[in-house]
Design a protein around this nucleic acid. Structure first.
Length: 561
RNA sequence: GGGGGCGUAGUGCAGCGGCUUAACACGCCGGCCUGUCAAGCCGGAGAUCGCGGGUUCGAAACCCGUCGUCCCCGCCA
């Protein structure tokens, strides 16, 4: 028989219709004389009923049905008897009076319950992902993700963007994230890398004369996964010609307005706040602040210049956060603060209120937490402290979603060995007025780079690119890349820039993070159909796995024990 | 590479200042039940307490080690 309806989509409009449903046994409730079967398909659940001492074709089958068996039900849609309507179900007004039940396929007993939304250990969920995906919340998330990707695609197409697929097998250009290497039978000892991002290709596309490009691009990075990071992920990759920073902000803000409107029914206020990197660090101690909380870092270095307390007097920088009306000033909560502050290398000092700066307007109910030390690291620690305060005090955000821009990132930063590296990537344009600093103070050069941050989560970042060969050379010089090295890694891009490259720039948005944010999920694994564990292992398929030596030989590899 | 949390029936958990037959809920199996939808009632099976070692008359519990997992730092041009 052919299926006529989805179980999840029946309403009182279907009353009286003869329907055929196919789906899974979600739940059976056997009351002796009357039996109920909750039949589930991809759209939802409908109650099937056998009243009056259970009769009809296939009833003997019914008594042996188990959870997740696949069945077909033929019957008539009817309004439920008075008093038995279930307002919690979408189809709760109706039920199917079953005329014929048949079994399509049996199911083994399950490793965990599909009908319950209770937490199950993630490794088990991942091992049986196909069962986990049947569960309501994940199922809905994956469908919502599909809707969001359609909205994104439609948006960019309407805006005149060209969607282009760029290679995933790319040239290995070490320097940033660790690449996944791909050996090949062609050419002994040569490798492809999996693309960490389409960065270079999208710039080449702009040079190719495509005015606006976008792609939902798969990217691969051999780095440690986190709740918000997977070894493979998707980004909305965007690049535009003849534009400035504000054009990128405009397109992203309009996309976000659409997404939040459609998915959340929320109108986001535009334009978003813009903070410079420096401002963000000084006020929030991070380059991805959650600005829905007012708590800001207060610079009290000068105030404590003559303090009797050495720690405050001698620190090159002293900053504090005032927790207004800290209702929880009790030993227990102070201990939490103390432990946390100790953990980030500070200490909690008891100061009488009269020793606090007057401009704080602190009252005896307030808590002023102070950290001192070298400025940059102290600000970062204050940033962590700020997040902890929000948790401990259980502060309520001022609004549900607040995206902001952070701009003017430093062009360079120091890595662990004290070497200068690109903060964003080496094709990021410096601010015009900072170009003179290349010789004297490269760390002081600000970049035409920007991040979009939503509720303290970095959703994306981008920049206006360098099109001047001269400036590009200066950047490579600062990075300590020799002519030969540059030639080897990037010659194709540099050559391309010589043939009339238009001014251009763009952004890459983390699609998984964006979807998670829109759906209120903490972990991107809740919006990815088949994610990997934090060890990059996939318990579903048992990957990565070892490879036959013969196969290795063909790609000129040998595994060392 | 480092720090922290967790690891006890199929699932989720209790027990972790050494007295237990290792508790409870869901699921599973059997029975009853005519309107449930977290169905209800009665009964049952199911756990070498992640693994290894140690302390002890006695360890799920205490100690050491190890493995796994989750969160965080590093890392993520």
């Amino acid at each position: 028989m052919k299926r006529t309806h989805f179980a999840g989509s029946l309403t009182s409009r279907n009353v009286g219709e003869e329907v055929v449903l196919q789906g899974w046994v979600h739940k059976i409730r056997n009351h002796g004389g009357v039996m109920f079967l909750d039949l589930r398909d991809s759209e939802g659940i409908t109650q099937v009923v056998w009243p009056d001492n259970v009769k009809g074709e296939g009833v003997d089958l019914l008594l042996n049905l188990k959870s997740e068996d696949v069945v077909e039900v033929k019957g008539t849609v009817r309004i439920r008897p008075i008093g038995s309507i279930n307002p919690k179900m979408r189809t709760g007004e109706v039920e199917i009076l079953c005329e014929k039940l048949s079994l399509i396929n049996k199911s083994q007993p399950l490793p965990f319950e599909i009908t319950k939304e209770k937490e199950v250990e993630e490794p088990l969920r991942l091992k049986y992902r196909y069962l986990d995906l049947r569960r309501d919340s994940l199922h809905r998330n994956i469908k919502a993700r599909s809707v969001i990707s359609r909205l994104v695609r439609d948006f960019f197409h309407k805006e005149g963007f060209v969607e282009v697929e760029t290679p995933i097998l790319v040239k290995n250009t070490p320097g940033g994230a660790r690449n996944y290497l791909v050996p090949t039978r062609f050419g002994s000892g040569r490798f492809f890398a999996l693309a960490e991002s389409p960065q270079i290709y999208k710039q080449l596309l702009i040079i190719s004369g495509f005015d606006k490009y976008f792609q939902l691009a798969r990217c691969f990075r051999d780095e440690d996964p986190r709740a918000d990071r997977q070894p493979e992920f998707t980004q909305i990759d965007v690049e535009m010609a003849f534009i400035q920073e504000e054009d990128v902000r405009d397109i992203v803000e309009r996309l976000f307005s659409l997404l939040w409107q459609e998915m959340q029914g929320i109108i986001l206020k535009r334009p978003y706040k813009i903070l410079t990197y420096e401002e963000s660090m000084e006020r929030f101690g991070t380059d991805k602040p959650d600005v829905r909380f007012e708590l800001e870092i207060i610079d009290v270095t000068d105030y404590f210049r003559d303090s009797r307390i050495n720690y405050l007097r001698d620190s090159p920088y002293v900053g504090g956060i005032l927790v207004k009306d800290a209702k929880k000033i009790s030993r227990k909560y102070l201990k939490e603060y103390e432990d946390f502050v100790k953990g980030i290398g500070g200490k909690l000092i008891n100061l009488p209120v009269k020793e606090l700066p007057k401009f704080l307007n602190a009252s005896p109910n307030d808590l002023f937490l102070i950290l001192g030390g070298e400025k940059k690291s102290t600000l970062e620690r204050l940033g962590f402290l700020r997040k902890r305060i929000i948790e401990i005090e259980e502060l309520k955000p001022s609004t549900k979603f607040e995206p902001i821009w952070i701009k003017n990132f430093p062009l360079f930063e120091l890595d662990q060995e004290g070497k200068l590296t690109s903060k964003h990537h080496p094709f990021t344009s410096p601010l015009e007025e900072d170009i003179s600093l290349f010789g004297s103070n490269p760390l002081g050069i600000r970049a035409r780079a920007y991040d979009i941050v939503v509720n303290g989560v970095e959703i994306g970042g981008g920049s206006i690119r360098i099109i001047s060969q001269e400036i590009q050379k200066k950047v490579f010089e600062v990075l300590g890349l020799g002519v030969k090295e540059v030639e080897d890694k990037f010659s194709f891009l540099l050559k391309a820039l010589n043939y009339g490259a238009p001014p251009h720039g763009g952004i890459a948005l983390g699609f998984d993070r964006l979807v998670a944010n829109l759906l209120g999920e903490e972990s991107i694994r809740e919006v990815i159909a088949f994610p990997k564990m934090t060890s990059t292992y996939d318990p579903l398929t048992d990957a990565p796995s070892s490879v036959d030596p013969e196969q290795l030989k063909k790609v000129y590899l040998r595994v060392e024990e």
